[in-house]
């Protein structure tokens, strides 16, 4: 049985050390923010200029100038800080962010990531992803296991334009947790009642 988004978020959170800093990408990774236990004392960074995101505001406290990188309204916790984009990306590029959690279109065994464009079809832009994957201490990908066409998104070689080379540490999908090691994806964990056949991944890229 596949994990829900919340259960996937919980799998991601298992890798977080207490008192660490985390940047969460747009889309699926935002589910992580809602699941982090308070006692872990995680500082959530959003690249538009805030460290210490805490969740959602109330009707009374909501502010149009307090948003995350997904342009959603947020609240902040005690100890939070605001800063400009250069300082924000200094935190990222300078290696001060412990973990980033990003969505992806494709990941390959060589730890390469593609998540910003489909040539001739779809361009979202890379936003902060190219900086995040090169600067964060650990890069965790949280994504659906299959594309809309039903193909596994864990590949031997990315087909789409790269976001970063040799950057991905872990991949969490609804079916399991995987570690690309340069040759294959190591299966660290499978969702309940999931078999390796359910992954529909070529046997030579799976251990």
């Amino acid at each position: 049985m596949a994990w829900t988004n919340s259960e996937m978020a919980d799998e991601v959170i298992l890798f977080f050390k207490p008192f660490s800093s985390v940047n969460l990408g747009i889309g699926m990774p935002t589910a992580v923010a809602e699941r982090i236990p308070e006692n872990l004392q995680i500082m959530i960074h959003s690249e538009n200029g805030v460290l210490g995101v805490s969740g959602r505001p109330t009707k009374q406290s909501v502010s149009p100038t307090l948003i995350n990188a997904g342009k959603e309204t947020i609240a902040v916790k005690k100890g939070a800080s605001y800063f400009d984009s250069a300082l924000s990306f200094g935190m990222i590029r300078g290696g001060h962010i412990d973990y980033c959690v990003l969505g992806a279109m494709e990941v390959d065994v060589s730890r390469n990531l593609a998540n910003w464009m489909v040539p001739g079809k779809k361009v979202t832009g890379m936003g902060g992803a190219m900086d995040l994957v090169n600067g964060s201490k650990q890069v965790i990908i949280m994504m659906n296991h299959f594309s809309k066409e039903g193909e596994a998104k864990l590949l031997s070689h990315c087909q789409l334009p790269f976001t970063g080379l040799n950057v991905v540490d872990l991949v969490v999908t609804e079916l399991g947790v995987f570690k690309p090691n340069g040759n294959i994806f190591e299966v660290l964990k499978l969702a309940p009642n999931t078999t390796k056949e359910d992954l529909k991944m070529s046997i030579n890229i799976l251990n």
């Binding site: 690249e47 400009d84 984009s85 250069a86 924000s88 990306f89 990222i92 590029r93 890379m126 936003g127 902060g128 992803a129 190219m130 900086d131 090169n134 600067g135 790269f162 970063g164 080379l165």
Partner: peptide, 26 residues
């Protein structure tokens, strides 16, 4: 890339002509 974008702008304001970054390599 957003970090390169902000740093290129900051660099202009700070009188830095260019810089090297791993962001975007490859």
């Amino acid at each position: 890339p957003q970090g390169t974008f902000s740093e290129r702008i900051r660099a202009a304001g700070m009188g830095i002509r260019a810089f090297y970054t791993p962001t975007g390599f490859g």
